[in-house]
Amino acid sequence: MPPMMRRRSVLFGIAASPAIPYPSLAQTSAPPSTLFTVALAELTKGREIKSGRIRLETSPLAESGSSVECKITVENALATPDQVQTIHLLSEQNPIPTIARFHIAPDTGDVVIETSIRLRTTQRVHAIAQMADGALYADKSESVVLLAACLDAG
């Protein structure tokens, strides 16, 4: 192994993909932070954001902000000029708005990505898909956070 390569515990699983339910949204969040507004503007560069094609789901009620379930689904036909290229995951209230950027190879087919994210507080999260033809599609999801990320009582 090269010197910088070390061994960490890694877990893998594999299964057939299940179907996805769609969440309902409550609106209890504070207005988005300036950081978020700026990050969104940099990303869209004045382009119109459409809804559809992308779906974002986060736990409606998160027991701890240090780990909140998150699922992104994008309809993505093969061999078309408007395939998804990049998905931006943005938080309205975190100190750093960008949570992750997902770069998707061409001809991937429908995209389903799941991860766990940190949320400082109750807020909306946005997933914005940029297509190969430049079009933008977005969806948002709200999580009520019962215990904020980054508290440690021991």
Binding site: V68, I96, A100, V112, E114, R118
Partner: peptide, 17 residues
């Protein structure tokens, strides 16, 4: 390829197709 920021939870979990 995922550009990961601190907003991803500790002991990162990713699932994909």
């Amino acid at each position: 390829r995922i550009d990961v920021a601190p907003g991803i939870a500790a002991n990162p979990f990713f699932a994909f197709n």
